[in-house]
């Protein structure tokens, strides 16, 4: 990493300065459990392993590119299969990215509220391709319903676009991208007035504790019904991709720069042993959003309360 930064020239050398002094840069994507986990990693690295750390807020796709370029060292949550193609390139071809062997189970769906499902008859994801169902979600009278498919920087959002095309609701629904808190405030407002709402959803997440959420039915995951081409591979990625069934059961891992194995073996060993559970992630998500606590403070409390587990990770 040191050599790569020096070779990169004056401009990026400024970005790489922390790496020169062996500072570990931990990327911080914008969803709650990743933010808290980034702080937990930073806290343990600093307090237990005596390493200088800098947190860098960054979108997940850019974060993986940053690891490949040697600008960032750690990704708290690399989601699969969302980032499958990028991971394959960096991990298996360029050997710049390593994923921890431990993962957290996750799920991704499209959701609605129970009230919406009962009022509109929306039960299955393919129902959204029916104009009469989609009409219930049209708030701006343009003839298309509206659905939130994720934040612009998320790796899942491109795939949700592919899913909309594959199920046919790209023709009946306007696919909205926006930050998660804006989208979930729409769910809050819809629940408050009994208005219909439909949106991308994932677990672990606090939203299931806040509202009565229904997951839309889909055919079980079939690898033959999925083909994802990334925008980096082909500008015509959308027309070349398909995703005609539910998501593959998902999972996420801590990811880190492979160079750490040589440069900072203790750090790499710690990152390989981190084990955040699904229950931890739900609690983090709820604490950030519903309790309104800062990721930094939640992480500090978590580290204090989980000394035994952390001891296992750093020994």
């Amino acid at each position: 990493m040191l050599l790569r930064c020096l070779a990169a020239g004056a401009l990026s050398a400024a970005l790489c300065t922390p790496a020169l002094s062996a500072t570990i840069v931990v990327g911080q994507p914008d969803w709650p459990s990743a933010q808290v986990t980034a702080h937990i990693i930073a806290d343990v690295l600093q307090e237990r392993l005596g390493v200088e750390v800098r947190l860098r807020p960054v979108g997940t796709i850019e974060l993986m590119g940053g690891i490949d370029r040697g600008e960032i060292d750690v990704h708290p949550e690399v989601w699969l299969p969302n980032g499958e193609e990028i991971v394959r390139e960096y991990r298996d071809v360029r050997h710049s990215l390593t994923l921890s062997p431990i993962s957290v189970a996750a799920e991704q769906h499209v959701c609605t509220t129970r009230e919406t499902s009962e009022a509109t008859g929306l039960k299955a994801l393919k129902d959204l391709s029916k104009p009469e169902i989609a009409a219930a979600f049209d708030t701006d009278s343009d003839g298309l319903g509206e659905i939130w498919i994720g934040a612009r920087t998320w790796s899942s959002t491109r795939i949700e676009r592919v899913r909309a095309k594959s199920y046919g609701y790209d023709a009946t629904m306007m696919l909205l991208t926006m930050p998660e808190d804006q989208a979930l405030a729409s769910v809050d407002a819809a629940v408050a007035t009994g208005a219909p709402i439909v949106f991308y959803c994932y677990t672990p997440h606090y939203i299931y504790a806040l509202h009565d959420i229904v997951t839309l039915e889909e055919p079980a995951y079939d690898p033959n019904a999925w083909k994802i081409v990334t925008a980096e591979q082909d500008p015509a990625w959308l027309s070349l991709s398909k995703a005609e069934t539910a998501w593959e059961p998902s999972r996420y891992h801590v990811g880190y720069a492979t160079s750490l194995k040589q440069d900072q073996p203790k750090v790499a060993a710690f990152l390989d042993r981190i084990k955040i559970t699904e229950e931890d992630a739900v609690a983090m998500s709820y604490a950030v959003h519903v309790d309104g606590r800062s990721p930094e403070e939640i992480a500090a409390t978590w580290v204090k309360d989980n000394g035994d587990r952390i001891e296992e990770w750093v020994k």
């Binding site: 708030t139 701006d140 343009d142 509206e146 939130w148 306007m174 909205l176 926006m178 808190d181 804006q182 989208a183 405030a185 729409s186 407002a189």
Partner: peptide, 11 residues
Amino acid sequence: VIVLMQGAALY
């Protein structure tokens, strides 16, 4: 202040 992306906001 969160302005929701729906209704008049989409006009």
